[in-house]
Design a protein around this nucleic acid. Structure first.
Lengths: 300, 300
DNA sequence: TACCTGCTATCGAAAAATTCGATGGACGCC
DNA sequence: GGCGTCCATCGAATTTTTCGATAGCAGGTA
């Protein structure tokens, strides 16, 4: 017979459950009966836990095994863990058809216009009982994931730090949006003619800089905007029948291309639109369903 | 070789950690190296987890072990549990300087007068954030320990049953307290003259009998008290400028010996003042600190 | 296609951990 | 003081885990 193994990682759930039963019954012998094992097996396991935690855990007081304070602390966590084990053993089922949860999606103007309508309609079709909330990602969407304010983040955000996962939805680039009657509407723009245009600059604020601007400035150029707007909302009305030109993501341009012309931009500033989520939602069946749905919608 | 045990309660933390490492490295072989075990031990444990969760957990895809969704789910909880284990393993640390707990001390009049003031001041000095509560021990201080109403018990209580520990603080004996002008104040008291004094008897009630009385009665004597009081409070005022004599523990007599005389008692009824605590607090860091502090204060 | 290489599953044997049944000592209860 | 209950401990038996070796599988390469 050897001393029990004092390596804490050798503690198994049976040992935690035994701790629970001993605590409940206040007796090793009674616990042994309840667990259908020999009393010495209980003593053995308790001895092992005692060695692991460097605490007697139970002491005899007036004919009863009474727990120490340390034991109570350990027991509290043990109960949690036993509960988690039960959850683990139960596969995480998610039925879109009967789900009534809420999903919160963090994104910005671009995604609200181009993705959210189709996404909401897909969610309502597959999961009629669920509700959708859309919040602004601004520049710190990652924080909203960490704070659990949002379930997913959609946007031009690369997977930044650890603690996040991401999936690329598609590639996007910038293009020029101008009135169909603009003098340069039918010529390919070279760098010089692009730079001299009457630019509408979308400045979201918060230090965010569009990829085409980074590319342009990296090449040593600069544009002098005529109009600065905080978002592309109402942009079409602004440009139509004017000589203004806005540089916007191509799909956003094409979205209101009825009477506007979308032209290649000499600084395309290619970027990826990605789906980002926090590691703690990675395993959840609901979140997996949601992410898959978003992926399918974005691919269409 | 047998099949691994598919009972989920036989899963230990080493298995959860192994799952984590396999997931991280995407390879059983690499995980085995990192964990300093044989590759077949890794296979064995994974086989066991597979049987417990009824899921392959890892499937080979393009030369790499890719985790299943279920595996991610299980892993997420496993990581939490490993974190909780680490918390549980934290030794019971106690920092007097930053502690904010309460300590409850059970004792009686004698200790409240002679020990508690110095003890409270020592606690406030070493542990300014802690609070102290003093409760009456009466005759059943042991029960208060068992019921967790008190952390320690101080008094003339020998270690009684098992389930308790005790430490002797110092020896004490009874002495006679009388006015300095009492006729017998300057003579040594013999048994007869002692018995004939006008006694003040302190009767705490509850069946408690002072040691000098037990000694006196064991010798076949008896005293007829003139005054019976339930506690020594106000005793000095009672005795001063009277012919009354009280038999009290010597240190208690000396405590108000300004104008009173303390004389040897022919029945000194020697006893020990002890510190007593319940077995369930024996290992606790806070209680060890408290007991050591009490010992240091009592020794001064 | 055939070979080579790296990886996992499985085997029998060996080692380690756990359980069993029995016993001894401590303690509470008559 | 004797009796019965309870836990710790012992040696043996049993079960679980690990080891070392090898077979089988898949991917990449000639």
């Amino acid at each position: 017979m050897a001393q029990p193994n004092a390596d804490p990682s050798s503690i198994d759930f049976a040992a935690l459950n035994l701790l629970r039963v001993v605590h409940e019954l206040g007796s090793f012998t009674a616990a042994a009966e309840k667990l259908n094992v020999n009393q010495s097996a209980v003593s053995y396991t308790i001895a092992k836990l005692r060695a692991c935690f460097h605490d007697p855990l139970f002491v005899r007081e007036g004919g009863r095994q009474v727990s120490t304070d340390r034991c109570e602390e350990i027991l509290a966590r043990s109960l949690q863990m036993l509960g988690m084990l039960d959850e683990m053993l139960q596969p995480d089922a998610f039925e879109p058809g009967s789900a009534t949860q809420n999903v919160t999606i963090a994104c910005n103007y671009y995604e609200r216009v181009l993705l959210i309508p189709a996404l909401v309609s897909a969610i309502r079709r597959e999961a009629p009982g669920m509700t959708v909330k859309v919040i602004n990602a601004l520049g710190d969407g990652h924080l909203r994931l960490l704070n659990r304010e949002a379930d997913v983040l959609i946007g031009p955000f690369a997977r930044s730090e650890s603690g996040f996962h991401s999936r690329r939805l598609y590639a996007e680039e910038y293009a020029c949006l101008m009135d169909a009657a603009h003098p340069l509407a039918d010529t390919a723009l070279d760098i010089d003619s692009y730079l001299c245009l009457n630019h509408v600059l979308i400045d979201y604020g918060g230090g965010w800089q569009s990829a085409y601007l980074r590319e342009l400035e990296a090449a040593g150029h600069r544009i002098a905007p005529v109009v600065v707007a905080p978002s592309p909302a109402g942009l079409a009305t602004l440009i139509i029948e004017s000589d203004l030109v806005a540089t916007v993501p191509r799909r956003l341009g094409e979205w209101n291309a009825d009477r506007l012309k979308v032209a290649d931009c000499p600084f395309p500033g290619r970027f990826d639109v990605s789906l980002v989520w926090a590691a703690h939602t990675n395993a959840s069946a609901m979140h997996r369903w949601l992410r898959d749905l978003i992926w399918r919608v974005a691919r269409r």
